[in-house]
């Protein structure tokens, strides 16, 4: 039973991460290697709360706001134009986050920081697995609802227009930065909250588990693979990834790990350049019918 709950939690956590990543990669055509940074910010925010005896709920909220702040700064400074600079900056952030967290004593012990056991709802710790499963389902549900919301509101229409015909969209007064910035900060918040939940479920954090660059590359790749056409695509891709990651050593140590990471980076570049609509485009999906249009 616990094994099934563990699998379910991982599936919903990575489905939520994949959905948040797809807003960037699939909808806004932003390649970001920073999802693990936002994931780690959420994890370390609840770690600091545990270290100081505070409630992890406040830690999760604070981590989310810190992620939003970081995303907004990066977006405002580097998200103009085609976003190549932004991608490079997120790559640097992703590479620096793990050694940074390992070196800073105020973030807890450098290797693994196991949280003190304080069972209780206010401490976001439960004796059973099912409350974590329920919370992971809630986070995923909110992320998926935001996907549907994004597709039916102005930012979603603008992002669709920009990726289909950039020049024509600008002729109609569509600005590129505001909708891209919006999805970036919302994605950062959801990713950070997911990181907080994951850290509490694991009852600890470590720089390698939460902030490693390969994790960021994994999440970015899942978001790109799904594409924007099928609204459930990212969730399915995230769930499949969670199962694979649980069963197989996707990122082995040493040379093999470096080869895997290199191949992954190559896949991200190839999909972003050659198949920006993702790999699910062969699926027989109907042209989207606007729910705002009532039948004649």
């Amino acid at each position: 039973m616990d094994f099934a709950a563990d699998i379910g939690i991982l599936v919903f956590v990575f489905a939520a991460l994949a959905v948040a990543s797809s807003w960037l990669g699939a909808y806004a055509r932003i390649v970001s290697f920073a999802p693990a940074v936002f994931f780690g910010i959420g994890g370390y925010a609840v770690a600091v709360s545990n270290l100081r005896g505070g409630s992890p709920w406040y830690g999760a909220l604070g981590g989310g706001l810190a992620a939003v702040l970081l995303a907004a700064i990066c977006g405002l400074l580097f998200l103009r134009g085609r976003g190549v600079t932004f991608t490079a900056v997120t790559l640097a952030l992703g590479a620096l986050a793990e050694p940074f967290a390992a070196a800073k004593a105020w973030l807890g012990p450098g290797d693994v920081f196991a949280f003190p056991h304080r069972i209780g709802f206010l401490n976001l710790q439960f004796a059973a697995k099912w409350p974590y499963l329920l919370l992971a389902l809630c986070v995923f549900g909110v992320a998926q609802a935001l996907t549907f919301g994004l597709r039916e509101t102005r930012p979603g229409f603008y992002l669709h227009a920009l990726r289909t015909n950039f020049g024509a969209a600008q002729d109609l007064g569509v600005e590129a930065l505001p909708p891209r910035l919006l999805v970036l900060v919302v994605s950062a918040f959801v990713t950070s909250v997911t990181g907080s939940l994951f850290a509490e479920y694991a009852l600890g954090v470590s720089p390698h588990a939460l902030l490693a660059l390969p994790l960021g590359a994994d999440i970015a790749l899942i978001g790109l693979i799904a594409g924007p056409r099928w609204p459930w695509g990212a969730a399915v891709a995230g769930a499949v990834y969670a199962l694979l990651a649980h069963l197989l050593p996707l990122h082995p140590d040493g040379i093999a790990g470096a080869v895997v990471l290199g191949a992954e980076a190559l896949a991200i570049v190839l999909i972003a350049v050659l198949r920006p609509d993702g790999l699910f485009t062969a699926l027989p999906v109907r042209a989207r019918r606007s729910p705002m249009e009532s039948p004649a």
Binding site: H160, A161, L172, V174, A287, R288
Partner: peptide, 14 residues
């Protein structure tokens, strides 16, 4: 200025 993979209504909504 058509947005190829959008419906006509969605294009005008932009």
């Amino acid at each position: 200025a058509t947005f190829g993979d959008m419906t006509v209504l969605d294009s005008v909504l932009v």
